[in-house]
């Protein structure tokens, strides 16, 4: 019994590296998957981005509608820097904007905003 377990363990160790490399190769080279996942997490976190409060987002339930739906984002924001700026400080374009200035007021860190941008560009 013990011998079988050891064999399986050894097999696992043998296959681990090529398996891992396989998943890495399969990941898209354009967008960083880890960033996209992090961005989605921060976006949906009620204490952080809380984007669903005002925006409809695919995968999200009970979305608010104070802001525009977040769809066709790559087409609407061909330059990711513009999207980042809008999230970071929407007051630049509109000083009366009801969107919180996530960067200006340090609601989110720059890394978190970068991650959200990565996620939004997949929508």
């Amino acid at each position: 019994m013990r011998k079988k377990m050891t064999v399986i363990k050894r097999l696992g160790k043998l296959l681990a590296v090529p398996l891992l490399m396989g998943t890495m190769i399969a990941a898209p080279s354009y967008a960083d998957n880890a960033m996209v996942e992090k961005g989605k997490k921060v976006a949906f976190d009620r204490k952080k981005g809380n984007c669903l409060a005002c925006h409809m987002i695919a995968d999200g339930t009970l979305p608010g509608n104070q802001g525009p739906a977040l769809i066709a984002m790559k087409a609407r924001f061909p330059d990711p820097a513009v999207l980042k700026a809008q999230i970071s400080n929407p007051l630049e374009k509109n000083p009366n904007s009801i969107m919180p200035p996530f960067g200006l007021h340090n609601i989110l860190s720059e890394e978190e905003i970068d991650a959200i941008v990565e996620y939004l560009l997949t929508l």
Partner: peptide, 21 residues
Amino acid sequence: LEQSEDAIAQYQREGNLWAAR
């Protein structure tokens, strides 16, 4: 400290904006 500085900046910025709303 940054929070208070941002809050004061917000207060000053709003001084010129609120009435037009």
